[in-house]
């Protein structure tokens, strides 16, 4: 079976001529099913750029990125979008819930985009909210929820599509440490259920919870360590 993420000699550049920026520079990386990977590195080191490639939101300038066995450079926008919808669950630092939309509708939306009937989508969304202890907030909008609650809804939205990969960019960055710990507990639990998790973070304490840590600097991988820190 194909690796969840496979990168070989991947570069990503922005701009051209003299002002060219190498956000990623010859990265080789393989992430297998069931891993829990933290990507760390200083600001501007290329973490978000890497996350965009793994999340099928962008294509590399050079090299090959394969997600769930699919070469991104070979896919058109429609296929990339399908891959995001079916294979990946996104969790963002600032939650990114849809505004003026209830928790239930937020969670149901990815299913609607893949053509699931509205009733069925809501049923699945509600059971996912229940699993995350948020079913009593189903009809609340984002502005009526605390940060931790919003992140739980966002996680429910990421999970409802049953993705093979959860991609989390600073998921605890906007939360206090207690709430952040709850979110990390949740991710650990999901990983134990078999879901692959890629986590981007500044926070070394958070990174320690992962089974594997990859350090980036100037667009290059400078260390890749496995096992508990």
């Amino acid at each position: 079976m194909a690796a969840v993420v496979e990168m070989s000699k991947v570069s990503k550049t922005f701009g051209d001529g003299t002002s060219i920026i190498r956000a990623l520079d010859g990265v080789d990386l393989k992430i297998e099913k069931g891993e829990f990977v933290a990507i760390v590195g200083p600001s501007g080191s290329g973490k978000s750029t890497m996350m965009n490639l793994i999340g099928c939101l962008d294509r590399p300038s050079n090299g090959v990125v394969k997600i769930a066995g699919e070469d991104l450079s070979m896919l058109n926008d429609k296929k990339l979008t399908e891959l995001r919808n079916y294979a990946i669950g996104f969790i963002f630092q600032s939650f990114f819930l849809l505004p003026k939309t209830t928790a239930l509708e937020n969670v149901a939306t990815p299913l609607l985009y893949r053509g699931v009937h509205s009733k069925e989508a809501k049923k699945k969304a509600l059971s996912m909210l229940k699993k995350l202890g948020m079913s009593d907030r189903a009809t609340h909008g984002p502005t009526e929820l605390s940060g931790g609650q919003q992140q739980r809804v966002a996680i429910a939205r990421a999970l409802v599509t049953e993705p093979s990969l959860i991609l989390a960019d600073e998921p605890t960055g906007a939360l206090d440490s207690a709430t952040g710990k709850q979110v990390m507990d949740l991710l650990t639990e999901l990983n134990q259920e078999g879901i692959t998790i890629v986590l981007i973070t500044h926070d070394l304490d958070v990174a320690k919870r992962a089974k594997r840590r990859i350090s980036l600097k100037d667009g290059k991988i400078i260390s890749d360590t496995k096992g508990a820190a």
Partner: peptide
């Protein structure tokens, strides 16, 4: 724009 980005990320096609 942000909302559109979120929708695209979670699987909205251009046509949608």
């Amino acid at each position: 724009t942000r909302e559109i980005g979120i929708r695209r990320a979670i699987g909205a096609q251009q046509s949608q």
